[in-house]
Design a protein around this nucleic acid. Structure first.
Lengths: 153, 153
DNA sequence: ATGTTTGCAAATAGTTTGCATCCAG
DNA sequence: CTGGATGCAAACTATTTGCAAACAT
């Protein structure tokens, strides 16, 4: 689904991506996308809204929200921890990892030695204190594998 | 902080764990913990509430919420994707991984070849379709490293 | 032209807070 | 006894939805 030509300007890439996904290129969408590109800090919809308002004072938070979800749905951007679902709890505090079904949201635990033994990148060691390592695999579970579901969120 | 003797019955372990963390062992907490142990499905507070109500009909959703957060805070249970924070977005769809500061919530991107090359456990291959692999490291960032912050959530 | 997108307002969902009462230690 | 825990209600925050007007194609 993703474009294979990264040799376009970010803007052309965006236009092309939208066209391929039958999305209209509106000033709002453009502004949001450009703001996102400038934002290395994984902003929330609210924060993007505040920033985009500087150039488009009349934009609404709803539009930002809808646009971001749309972008995520077509794979133009990613959502980071916090998949928009409710908080869920896990009584297993021993080391284990998760598989998450992109269709039904099911989370499956698994244990896998090699993942526990993962090394920490040198470059991080100097500035960060790493306490936990978690591997998250994503894809489709047995039930959803065949059905052509739409991806969450 | 975690107890080192897993050779207690789950119930005694719980009582002991609570005592060490100066938490009273109330019927509600007991019921919630026991329900959690029976729940391999990473339930939400709402779902736990529904289940626990069968044995404690007068329990409130607030108590379930507070109790789960308390349990998570003392490390008795874990919270799963969806850290209770707002949804955040990432314009980088190329492969990369995240470090998350347990204190300030900051998310730092990093790239690390070996993580991209991770093998998928055999046991999962037969039933699941794995599309993405993400490694999440957690700990304290440079700024928070020294300050003794309380852990989110 | 026309079907999508937007902005607004209202609804909803999930979570948190204040407070009086209750109970485990 | 007494401070922490609970239940209730209300507040709050984030997100979603319905709809008429506006706009991109």
């Amino acid at each position: 689904m993703k474009l294979a030509q990264p040799d376009l300007s970010p803007l052309d890439f965006f236009r092309e991506y939208c066209r391929q996904h039958h999305l209209k290129v509106t000033p709002q969408r453009l502004a949001i996308y450009q703001e996102l590109l400038k934002s290395p800090d994984h902003p929330s919809a609210e924060i993007i809204y505040e920033r985009v308002k500087k150039s488009l004072p009349d934009i609404s938070l709803d539009t930002v929200n809808r646009t971001l979800l749309t972008f995520a749905r077509i794979g133009l951007i990613d959502t980071v921890e916090g998949y928009g679902e409710v908080r869920r709890f896990d009584p297993k505090t021993q080391r284990h990892h998760h598989f998450r079904c992109l269709s039904c949201g099911r989370i499956i635990d698994f244990e896998y030695e090699p993942y526990d033994a993962l090394s920490i990148p040198e470059s991080l060691q100097t500035t960060l204190t790493v306490l936990k390592k978690k591997v998250l695999l994503e894809g489709y579970c047995e039930q959803c594998r065949l059905k052509k579901h739409k991806v969450r969120p």
